[in-house]
Nucleic acid binder design. Structure first.
Lengths: 187, 187
DNA sequence: GCATATACGGAGTGATGACTTCGAATATAC
DNA sequence: GTATATTCGAAGTCATCACTCCGTATATGC
């Protein structure tokens, strides 16, 4: 069930459902309906549930791919020998992408406190990866040393949510980012 | 209907419903159910709908009070002869209050673009009032002059949303605010 | 006290959304 | 080509939620 089904039509449908779900959940967040996914994918509602037994599982299938991709990028940036731009570039990219990725932001929001525990793996890994970028940028003197992961995570999620919910033009978004980046600069 | 009903029990119920609704919508946002309001207020569902014909009207009744209060505070701060602390203090207070006021943040999020038009009056007024505080703080040299209302509004909403959604301890919240405030300081 | 207008609440209604059932269609093995 | 195991989708179930109906209870004016 987690692997590809044997029949070609089933495999095709599964792929199309995943693709459409990514767009639908990105637009409407986790509250978007499974029926809309089915309709846009051109399949019956039952087909969606056959491939992904619950809405939660479908949602996670979509999210896992994103978080994997993001984590990978973060880890490769962590090897960069320019930790400052690596950190700020990653931060900026997540915010820039936030507009059409509501479900991701929602999931990432709950990546929170070590004690929380009910966060999924993907969000937690990403938070971790951001932590590495942050520490390296701090060691390189590009980010103030009194900024902890908790507040950087909150700012990242906050600005992303703002961008996702408010229709902000290019220039305003750039200035909002600049304000946060200046605030993160060493004193 | 907008005014107090004549019978004492009706007046009492109306007040209790408003009080409970404030708490329920604050906790669960505008998605919270009318039935929960009725249950916690100790009245039947019909009583809620008699006093507030639709959920939207109930929600607005709750929100109007808040926005009025906030706008008033903002306007009185705008008379202060210390525009810098007035602006930052107000910003910080909204963020600090955000935790239990999900519905407010949601409404304020949509106060956006002048063109938007579908935002309610309260949120738009508050945005306006923040604009006044911002301009005065800029004139006094306490806030960088290249920060526009659009991005300040986005940051205010973003940080508030982050605080409302993430369980952030006192210290982390203070540092997140400090980062944003430092970013807003003149270059 | 009594009459009655006012307000009350429980039991609907209709819409929506997650999830299931089951007979029809079809891809693949032979 | 045919058999059959697999997959398909329309219609149905069940829960939730906004909102309504209507018979019952009670606050208030006399």
């Amino acid at each position: 069930m987690a692997t590809q089904p044997t029949r070609a039509d089933a495999r095709g449908n599964r792929a199309r459902i995943l693709e459409v779900a990514e767009e639908v959940f990105g637009r409407g967040g986790s509250a978007a309906s499974t029926e809309e996914v089915a309709r846009l994918a051109g399949v019956g509602i039952a087909t969606v549930f056959r491939h992904f037994p619950t809405k939660q599982i479908l949602l996670e299938a979509v999210l896992v791919r994103h978080f994997d991709r993001l984590c990978e990028r973060a880890r490769s940036l962590a090897e960069s020998d320019d930790p400052g731009p690596a950190f700020f570039g990653f931060f900026g990219q997540i915010v820039a992408d936030a507009a059409g990725k509501l479900a991701i932001i929602e999931a990432f929001t709950d990546a929170g406190g070590d004690v929380g525990g009910n966060a999924a793996q993907g969000p937690r890994d990403l938070r971790e990866a951001v932590g590495v970028l942050l520490r390296r940028a701090q060691d390189a003197g590009a980010v103030r040393t009194d900024a902890g992961l908790d507040e950087v995570h909150a700012l990242l999620v906050g600005v992303s949510r703002a961008v996702a919910h408010i229709r902000l033009d290019e220039r305003a978004r750039a200035r909002a980012l600049e304000i946060v980046f200046d605030g993160l600069a060493p004193r």
